[in-house]
Design a protein around this nucleic acid. Structure first.
Lengths: 222, 222
DNA sequence: AATATATGAAAGTATTACTATTAAACCGAA
DNA sequence: TTCGGTTTAATAGTAATACTTTCATATATT
């Protein structure tokens, strides 16, 4: 896909001070992505991040009120980016079936290149989504955070693709279930292939995740 | 299903001292299930559990070396129990298709009654699986723990049902992907229906989760 | 040059996830 | 019924986490 100098805007509820507004802010986000990948979300701390960026813990708290808030920010950035790619890739496609296949491929394929039109490494961010994103919404505060719009971008992406499903088959009863199953499922399969291979059938270079879910969706919505 | 006085044996790697060997041990497990449901896994601590059971934190550590270890124990108990139900429910069914449907129903239906042939409340345990089980394997120690057999019961259940899929269609390429997608997917849908309803199409009393996945599986394996 | 804003340094707090030690209670066998 | 072993309770302690607060300093704006 062509790389454009687009700008992804994040809901201001999701940070205390906009990390894009300063070099320090961008460094916090950029470095946190690397560190969450290396250490895992549990072992990642603002203290360690402070050391890594040669800044202070208290300065990081000026941008994000907690590491949970930072994770939610990253997840929203990811889904905004996917939404952009989705809209870009499906515009001017007239066939709903082609649009759906494009969307499913986008959700299930490995993210391999960092287009780097921004300060965010999308390859690493995709790995965080796969390994850590469930931790963002599996908390006792989900309901409250959901009301505040913390999961809007994800929901909007699911809605867009559900609408494509309904274009193809207006009588299909479970479009949201289908799309969220595909998205979460693809993430699980990528994780399992690395860590619990007995739970999957992923093989190097055979594109099995994309093929499996593309076929599953086509057959299911008929 | 008929309630039998069966006994579920848990791999002794999964505890320091077998909680089934004493009243205190059973109380630890029983009460931890209630508390993890009430507080969520993050806010649950051995200190709080000690207060609740009128025992001491240090006594709990004699049974489980950490709260993570306790969660892994519960998850294994759950999958052993599901495996038992699976084997029981599919024995004497000759049609592979019927066996598969039985399995899918078992995975996707809500657990509503506590058969209570044990000290474990299965309804609450099922809720923990839905909300917290991803936290068990989304850690930096997965690979190590997987080697030690911490996820054997889950893998065995997936294998059993994958074998049924292959009985129906020996050429189907992705049986493990399909089954793990259904299991994880059903858990997500139940969670979403409670907390992020925009991501699902679950409706009270309409059995949508079971219907959706049963239909999806049948169409996909053809 | 004055002022506002952003960042840094340091110290402090409550809580967590443990570990270690010792003493008391319990329990079965001689 | 007392001995020995095991189990549990009570207490204290540790290192780390997830912050908060305060104040000083650097930098940018007017």
């Amino acid at each position: 896909m062509e790389s454009l100098p687009i700008h992804i805007t994040i809901n201001s509820e999701l940070y205390t001070k906009n990390p894009e507004s300063s070099d320090l802010g961008k460094k916090i986000v950029r470095t946190s992505i690397e560190m969450i990948n290396d250490l895992g979300f549990e072992s990642f701390t603002f203290k360690k991040l402070g050391v890594a960026i040669e800044s202070n813990e208290s300065s990081i708290y000026r941008y994000f009120e907690s590491k949970h808030a930072l994770l939610v920010y990253l997840i929203n950035w990811y889904w905004s980016w996917i939404e952009y790619k989705l809209v870009f890739a499906t515009t001017n496609i007239t066939s709903a079936k082609d649009k759906l296949n494009t969307a499913i491929t986008l959700f299930t394929q490995e993210v391999k290149e960092d287009n780097s039109f921004t300060f965010i490494n999308e390859v690493l961010l995709n790995k965080i989504i796969i390994s850590e994103s469930a931790k963002a919404y599996h908390t006792k505060d989900v309901d409250e955070e959901n009301k505040k719009g913390f999961y809007e971008t994800y929901k909007r992406v699911v809605q867009r693709v559900s609408d494509i499903v309904l274009e193809i088959n207006p009588k299909f009863e479970f479009p949201h279930m289908l799309i969220s199953t595909v998205i979460e499922g693809a993430h699980h399969q990528r994780y399992f292939s690395q860590h619990l291979p007995a739970l999957t059938d992923v093989e190097e270079g055979k594109n099995n995740v994309v093929r499996f879910y593309t076929d599953l969706v086509q057959k299911t919505i008929v």
